[in-house]
Amino acid sequence: MKKQTKKIRVLIGKPGLDGHDRGAKVVARALRDAGFEVIYTGLHQTPEMIVNAALQEDVQAIGLSILSGAHMHLFQRVMELLKEKNATDILVFGGGIIPDEDIIALKKVGVSQIFTPGTATTEIIDWLAKSAS
């Protein structure tokens, strides 16, 4: 895997009440190993907490992991808050238990990419390196 020359800062967030953090931690670690600067929020964050952390940490991308079925509400709220804060330049991507028809709806509100179960971390790394630079 190629190391990043210019470090991209990315926030990995767990919004909502969902406690499944295996995927978020694996992705956070894989991105760090690939040379990204990774900030991990930990569990049980509100959309407000995530957007505030993203602004404070000056990240180029936010990756959200949701396996609880609450993705429609939580992603949309994050997108709204980014708009309110004039921070729509921050790339938002995500992963989790998200049916195909919801992926279409989430892309309509500005989510750049949703990675579904079985995605290789290399695919996420390559996508983020290309999209955030």
Partner: peptide, 10 residues
């Protein structure tokens, strides 16, 4: 408020 989007889902 913390329950928004989560009620009855899981």
């Amino acid at each position: 408020e913390r329950s928004l989007g989560e009620v009855g889902k899981c």
